[in-house]
Amino acid sequence: MISLRDVSKRYGLLRVLDGVSLDVERGEVVCLIGPSGSGKSTLLQCVNGLEAIDGGSIAVDGEAVHGRGTNINRLRQKLGIVFQQYNTFPHLTALENVALALRVVKRMPRRDAEAAAARQLAYVGLDGKADQYPSRLSGGQQQRVAIARALAMQPHYMLFDEVTSALDPELVGEVLQSLRKLRADGMAMLIVTHEMAFAREIGDRVAFFQEGKLVEVGPASQVLDAPRDGRTAKFLGRAAQ
């Protein structure tokens, strides 16, 4: 379980996260929606310790992410993250992108790492692109390499940070397809997204986020169709236009 308790974070005077509490169970899919700049991405980066927090606590399977004694590099292997801008390694082929951390972090022999990487690329539908460099791949393909790269570490949870926001509209579908497949396989996911229809389809629960606060959390259909909080309703109204 990913467990956030009263998490807060400030950039100077700006409160990016303000008393956020949220749980993500194993196998559960939670979608985070809300206006741009409301702190959703920051929240994800706090969960795997890429960002520090100023208050509260975040625990993954009972281990404090920001705890002093925590081996963050080992903990991060449980938490795959995929970013808006793909952030693939430009000097490595698709296969090497996926195999690198297996060799370096998990110390797998090259042959085993590449076999595992090939399986992950096939999983996201990129079997034919293993030897291509990222510069030769479309945005959607690069994003799927990034997904395969995170999945190769066999994480217990996947964090998705607006993974379709930088893509051309016609490329969004292929990336969402990989997420649907993951959901079908029971992967626990925390997904920051602007795709409301997708959040409704894939999310067990939807959390609405605004100005660093978690305004409303509930079953996807309830939050999206019958929001209890006026701010959620207002946001959904604007998003629908």
Partner: peptide
């Protein structure tokens, strides 16, 4: 790019 470096750390690299 710092984001590329971050991606590496996110995979558990020291």
């Amino acid at each position: 790019d710092r984001r590329t470096r971050r991606a590496a750390r996110s995979l558990g690299m020291t």
